[in-house]
Design a protein around this nucleic acid. Sequence first.
DNA 1: ATTTATTGTCTAACTTATAGACAATAAATA
DNA 2: TATTTATTGTCTATAAGTTAGACAATAAAT
Lengths: 238, 238
Amino acid sequence: MQILNNQNYIPQISIDCVIFGYRDKELKVLVSKLNFEGNFWSLAGGFINQHEDIDTAAYRILHERTGITEIYLEQFHVFGNAARNNIGFFKKLIELNPGTMGNEVYDWLNNRFISIGYYALVDINTAIPKKAELDKVIDWCNVKDLPGLIMDHKDIVEKALESLRQNLDQKLIAFNLLPETFTMKELQELYEAIFDKPFARNNFQKKMLDLNVLERLEKKFTGAANKAPYLYRFRNNG
Amino acid sequence: MQILNNQNYIPQISIDCVIFGYRDKELKVLVSKLNFEGNFWSLAGGFINQHEDIDTAAYRILHERTGITEIYLEQFHVFGNAARNNIGFFKKLIELNPGTMGNEVYDWLNNRFISIGYYALVDINTAIPKKAELDKVIDWCNVKDLPGLIMDHKDIVEKALESLRQNLDQKLIAFNLLPETFTMKELQELYEAIFDKPFARNNFQKKMLDLNVLERLEKKFTGAANKAPYLYRFRNNG
DNA sequence: ATTTATTGTCTAACTTATAGACAATAAATA
DNA sequence: TATTTATTGTCTATAAGTTAGACAATAAAT
């Protein structure tokens, strides 16, 4: 538990990361269950070292939780209501876990925190979820069907999703959620999962090809009794 | 100087406000010169009380500097590079002002700060600039011709302007920069100042009227030898 | 060879954006 | 009073972009 009372952390500021992944046609978020009595589910979070850039801190937290280093990461909002830590979470935690918590942990968690929200887009096949010190379970959950999250983490996810949707077309970042190669249908299904609405196949394909960022590779023979789709690769450079 | 070592402030977090106003066909920003030796120009800034929402703190800071209470305000980015306070500013400040600074001020300013950026849109005719404790001068400056600002305040203004431009069409917030009534030409000139590019008069008018948020009032007789323009008022509610 | 399901692409219809044109008009001028 | 000038409000033709329907191509099963 030495980490939490580390004097090198900036006090009263935290980082919460909404780590998005994509599998089984569902947009997922990496959440963890805290290693305490009671069903406390949380986003991947952490703190900022005194001499660390906040972006660097977010990368560090993400690397710790996913094992990957090349991560698309974006700061999207700061959550700073005075009451955000007090909506029952900490009291309930203490109540359900009497005597199990060191003073340092107690003192640290009992603070008011202002939290900087980041969202990350990762290839779920490459990311290997890794529990942090206080996690009991860590898993990918459908963004539409998350467990009850502590504090205002549900609001944070919603705001992250909203920001993701707004940025998706301008910044061409959806590809970070897919493996290296993918079919047009897979790309479309990803968009449909993110926006939670269907797209017209013909126009979606035209729009994506018109972006001039997709490289068409060989066909993908799936064994299905129909025309084989092409594989595409996202090429960032020219 | 008691304010700065106020134990009720959250340490190492600040708020910096880019207060936009509009006059003489120019987009302005409220900046202040610090009451020290040396030309230190700064954005309107402040700190967050322990039991204060960050939005409330931003409103408080804005009210202190402009005297107005109904302010359009939006959080747009957090600036948290570890080096942001150290790019010579503090050293230079100490060097040019030997022995004039109390220990509390010294200790407080010598900290690393993570700053939450807000931008505000105000009617420059209603806003009455008011110096804060450490300000020597406070004034509206053309956003295209700002004095040299301390720390990363120039970056903060640039990011604020970028965010303002992105939000302007979606959120219909430009009207906050104008007086109650205005002509179509004045509205267009405001847009041109914000985007730093010309708009076609006919299409601009059509676009604004198609928004269905402008109420047409009586004509404004300017005394000029030409057709009198209508005055318009922004109506927020249906 | 035929059928089936899906993919890739084309085009017509519709909507929106852009650019040019012109009438309306407030005040100055003749 | 009629004419001129500068600007405003609006219309329309054209261009550009979006949406919806259609159909050929094709991999594998029948």
